[in-house]
Design a protein around this nucleic acid. Sequence first.
DNA 1: CACAGACGGTAACAATTGTTACAGACTTAG
DNA 2: CTAAGTCTGTAACAATTGTTACCGTCTGTG
Lengths: 209, 209
Amino acid sequence: MEELIRETYRGIFEEELIDEIISVAKIVEFKEGDVLIDIGKYIKTMPLLISGAIKIMREDFDTGELLLYFIEKGDTCSMTLTCCMGDKKSEIRAVAENEGLVAMIPVGKMEEWMGKYKSWRAFVFESYNNRFNEMLAAIDNIAFMHMDERLYKYLLEKSKINNSRIITKTHQEIAYELNSSRVVISRLLKALENEGKIKMNRNNIALLL
Amino acid sequence: MEELIRETYRGIFEEELIDEIISVAKIVEFKEGDVLIDIGKYIKTMPLLISGAIKIMREDFDTGELLLYFIEKGDTCSMTLTCCMGDKKSEIRAVAENEGLVAMIPVGKMEEWMGKYKSWRAFVFESYNNRFNEMLAAIDNIAFMHMDERLYKYLLEKSKINNSRIITKTHQEIAYELNSSRVVISRLLKALENEGKIKMNRNNIALLL
DNA sequence: CACAGACGGTAACAATTGTTACAGACTTAG
DNA sequence: CTAAGTCTGTAACAATTGTTACCGTCTGTG
């Protein structure tokens, strides 16, 4: 376990910082579907992702839901960062996309490290930067792309995140994440199949190109 | 001028930091329509907004454009922050919404102050937080709202930013900022007028409620 | 005044997306 | 095996948004 953390953050953090992380972090295991952070909740510890993938979702006032982006190994969620630092409610929901591990860091340490370790500051800013760009990408998707393009891009991302060309999702689940409806997704998937880009099976979709 | 800066940032920064800002900042005047930052450009100085308002836009690969949010007095653009720190190209465009003043701070000072002033760190994080929330609001708009709602909200925001119930914009300009087309905007404005929410005139729109 | 150009109104139509409804295939529990 | 529930396919229709086209009105310039 300790070795896993060292491996994940070697080259990113100084040795001493990694030692500190190991000594204060509480390792938490999660499995697919676990809700790690929910909208409206206060966050008191910051998660560093060691393995697995987490999807960040935004929810509408009544019914809608929308996938914003994914977080992978060696990353953190800067939305959570701002929550921690500012003592604010979370504006997003974080759901495990597959099983994995996070190291939970107390907020106090975070602030301490900001002054103490240059690599930590760099990491935090890099993280902010990544998140901004992913938010912008999310905006580009919904503002400038049609549903068929968004759907195909979504399948490609899912495939990449789960490291498999088989995407095990129902049409309904996909509809939720893209904030669309099941019938629309079925329709567009059929079109993608006709174009030869995917092959549909029950409960899963195979990416062909 | 010096007094204006003191006034703007009193209560946000320590006295010594304000002194430093005054001694290193280059004050730049801008007028409506000035492009302060453009997509793909590198930023070497960070702008602190003293007066006026700036709109932050995102552009599509070919034709589309979309207004993300506004920045007002006493604020900064954290997109620019990440650009400065990471030496990356800007992903957004900043255009003056009306005339105003910015204090340009060299990047080096920024980093120096991060270690030196607690109030500066708090400001930077607060700024990140604000920008995240505005990005989320932008996403909510385009993902969950229809064009008529977006349009009305847009008019309310414009009114607030310019401190006037008269919005001096052509339908075409509004269409650009909402990434729609002139005909659609005209149609929806007409509907808003029929509902008694606005009154249309040539080259301007009056908000009634 | 004449004219060009910007601005807005409107109609007609296309494309995209959403909604409702229903049916068949499959899976699982009992 | 039966029944219930899940998953997908499909049709028909509505709503929203985008596109094209054309026509007035207004404004500023020469």
